[in-house]
């Protein structure tokens, strides 16, 4: 009798354990399937996570905005509403400390500095980790530096899908080539 209770409790636990990664898959896949794609200009560098492997940290060009709000706290949520600029990259339409009533896509970022004189608020976009195959993360950083020296403008961007405030980073591109492939191409002697 006792065993069966124990077993039922375990089945419940097992379902909860399964539900966490399954929900992660479901939520992220839904954003990828039906979200809007934006290109965020970025610069990568490579650190390591002991469990999830090598990744590149993305530092985005889009990291500040003019604001009319004056009460900002560091490390708090900021709603960044998006538009696409003339070159097709993501740009800030407006920012707000809370959700506003509009149909525009938005992402929830973290604030890290407010400059009262210039009315500038700085923020960090949430999708700043891009996991890569372990041998490619550092070469990716090197490849980016090389590519950015050759070009006049920053031509590295992250492709991010956005839906209802959720965002999923799909891939990072250098000169419109996925960064993983770009690293492979750099390695091959052709």
């Amino acid at each position: 009798m006792k065993t069966i209770y124990l077993f039922i409790l375990f089945v419940v636990l097992a379902l909860i354990q399964l539900s966490v990664p399954a929900t992660m898959v479901f939520n992220n896949q839904s954003v990828l399937n039906s979200g809007t794609a934006y290109k965020f200009k970025t610069r990568p560098i490579d650190p390591t996570d002991p469990f999830r492997g090598k990744y590149i940290t993305l530092s985005f060009d889009m990291n500040k905005a003019k604001t009319t709000d004056t009460i900002w706290e560091n490390n708090s949520d900021i709603y960044v509403y998006l538009k696409t600029d003339s070159l097709g990259y993501a740009a800030v339409k407006t920012v707000s400390p809370f959700k506003i009533n509009t149909d525009d896509d938005f992402v929830i970022a973290q604030t890290y500095g407010y400059y009262q004189k210039s009315n500038i608020i700085k923020f960090m976009l949430p999708f700043k980790r891009f996991y890569m195959e372990e041998s490619k993360a550092y070469p990716a950083e090197v490849a980016y530096r090389k590519a950015s020296r050759q070009a006049l403008v920053n031509n590295t961007y992250a492709l991010v899908y956005v839906k209802n405030g959720y965002s999923v980073l799909e891939d990072v591109f250098i000169n419109d080539v996925p960064i993983g492939t770009y690293v492979d191409l750099q390695k091959s002697p052709d």
Partner: peptide, 12 residues
């Protein structure tokens, strides 16, 4: 499981 899903979808 959580690590790999996090990695696949670049979960922040």
């Amino acid at each position: 499981a959580i690590a790999l899903i996090g990695q696949i979808y670049n979960v922040p």
